[in-house]
Amino acid sequence: MKIMLSNEQATLDFGARLASLLPEKALIFLNGPLGAGKTTLVRGLLLASGHQGSTKSPTYTLVEPYQLPSKSFYHFDLYRLGDPEELEYIGIRDYLDEKAICLIEWPEKGAGFIPEADLVLNLDYEGQARSIKLEPSDASWCQTVEQSLGY
Rank of each mutant, 00 (worst) to 15 (best):
K99P: 07
L119M: 13
I28Q: 11
A129S: 15
G32F: 06
E108D: 10
S72H: 14
S20C: 02
F14I: 05
T40Y: 04
L121Y: 09
I90H: 11
Y60P: 00
T59Y: 01
V145C: 10
G44T: 03
G53T: 02
A16W: 08
L62K: 06
N31A: 12
H51K: 04
P136G: 11
Y60L: 02
D124Q: 12
L121E: 07
L81D: 09
S49C: 02
T55W: 05
V145S: 06
S49T: 07
L47N: 12
L5G: 03
L30S: 13
P23A: 09
F14D: 00
L47H: 12
L45N: 04
I114M: 03
V42C: 13
F76P: 03
A19S: 09
Y95R: 06
Q9T: 02
T40Q: 12
L123V: 11
T55A: 10
V42A: 15
G82T: 14
S72N: 15
P33N: 15
G35C: 05
I90A: 11
L5K: 01
P58M: 04
V120T: 15
L96F: 05
P33Y: 01
V120H: 13
Y89D: 08
L123K: 09
T39V: 06
E24C: 09
Y79L: 03
E126R: 14
P23F: 12
L27K: 06
C142L: 12
E135C: 07
P69Q: 09
N31E: 15
Y79K: 01
N122Y: 11
Y79D: 00
L149F: 06
L96W: 04
W106V: 14
Q52H: 05
I101Q: 11
L45C: 04
P33L: 08
M1I: 12
G32A: 10
L149H: 08
S6G: 02
A19T: 00
K99F: 07
L149A: 06
L119T: 12
Q67Y: 14
I28F: 14
G82D: 13
A48M: 01
E64K: 03
G50L: 03
P136H: 07
L22F: 09
L46N: 03
R43W: 05
E135D: 08
C102P: 00
D97T: 08
R80F: 02
K25T: 08
S57R: 02
M4S: 08
S49I: 05
Q67M: 04
C102Q: 05
G44I: 05
G37F: 01
D138Q: 13
T40G: 04
A100Y: 13
G150M: 00
S70L: 07
E24T: 13
E8M: 14
Y74R: 08
G82K: 15
L41W: 06
Q143N: 14
L47P: 02
C102V: 15
D97A: 15
L119Q: 08
Q128L: 14
N122A: 13
L30R: 13
K25L: 06
G50N: 02
L47K: 14
P33K: 11
A129V: 06
L81R: 12
S70Y: 05
A100R: 15
L103T: 13
P58D: 03
I104F: 10
L27M: 09
E108Q: 11
W106E: 12
G91F: 03
D124M: 08
F14L: 10
K38G: 13
M1F: 13
Y89M: 12
F73K: 07
H75N: 13
D118E: 07
D97Y: 10
T55H: 07
G110S: 08
E86H: 14
